[in-house]
Simulated assay, not measured.
Amino acid sequence: MGSQNKTGSLQTTIHNAVATVQFGHPASNSFPRDLLNRLTAEINFLSTNSDVSIIILQSEGEKVFCSGASFDELLEVQNEEQGTEFFSGFAHLINAMRNCSKLIIARVQGKAVGGGVGIIAACDYVLATPESAVKLSELAIGIGPFVIEPAVSRKIGKSAMTQMTLEAHEWKSADWALQNKLFSAVHTANELDNAVEAFAQKLSSYNPEALTEMKKIIWEGTELWESLLIDRAAITGKLVLSDFTKNALLQFKK
């Protein structure tokens, strides 16, 4: 199934019990709220699909995996309610990925910023390329990575998350991401697809019930995220209204 419109594209193909979900958006694979909602719904749908045992999450193009929230939509936020609602989109997606009964493999072919890093952190296994630098730039635009922080900290620890967050202008290399366990493996761009395919096929040959039980164990202790991530969305929703953020977003757009 696939859908394409001005808010981006989303396509799913299923082959040998592996569902490949590909998202894309003309603005560096950023996420307007509508695309976030569609991806969340797709993850929830695949969670109950008995023909699928593994999900591959990937994006269009070569240079950028995901650049996070849509700046255009951030600039349109008029009040706290709208702000909370917008950032709840990432909360719902991360919770859907966490609650999904299928293991999720990320194919990261390029850079990831902000919410894009959160999505990577919410995957169960991540294959990337040497070009896949990562950055949490939120403080530079007057907000913070509040919604995605639990997912990022769970993967790389509070210390590395703090470093990434405070060094908001600095890219962290794929090697740094691998050493800090955000990435599971790094392959050249030419080898990435074969590596992702081979790993997904290997996993899909295992007992689906064992994979589902393993998924539950991997995410043990995160049950509070259901409400925590929404609370965090409210913090960001408030900050995004600040003059600091409005000005910073306009500067970034230029």
Rank of each mutant, 00 (worst) to 15 (best):
N247M: 08
K6W: 15
R107A: 08
L103C: 09
V196G: 00
E138C: 13
A233N: 04
G157D: 00
W219P: 12
S204R: 05
L75P: 07
Q22V: 09
C66P: 05
A189L: 05
P208K: 05
T12K: 07
V186M: 04
S153G: 11
L229N: 08
L46G: 02
A121Q: 07
N79P: 07
T129N: 06
L139S: 06
S101G: 03
E167M: 11
L192P: 00
L241I: 07
W171S: 10
K202C: 09
P130I: 03
C66T: 00
C123V: 04
E226K: 08
E167W: 08
Q4F: 15
L249T: 00
N5Q: 02
D51R: 12
K254F: 12
V147Y: 04
N44A: 14
F244N: 04
I94P: 00
L57F: 00
E220R: 15
L136E: 03
E167A: 13
D193E: 12
Q82N: 14
H92L: 12
E81Y: 10
T7I: 15
G89N: 02
V117Q: 05
I94S: 03
E85I: 12
A121E: 07
E73D: 01
E138I: 09
T13G: 05
S30G: 10
T7G: 15
L57I: 00
P145E: 05
S153C: 13
N180I: 12
A160F: 12
I217D: 14
L57K: 01
S30D: 09
N247W: 07
T40S: 01
T245G: 09
G68W: 01
N190A: 11
K238V: 11
R33P: 10
A121D: 06
V21K: 05
I143P: 04
F31N: 01
H92A: 11
G237N: 03
L211H: 03
E85V: 12
E223L: 10
E80L: 07
G144E: 13
A248Q: 06
V113L: 11
V134S: 07
S70W: 01
F90E: 09
P130F: 00
S137I: 09
R98E: 09
V147W: 04
T12G: 05
Q22G: 06
I217V: 14
T188V: 03
L75Q: 14
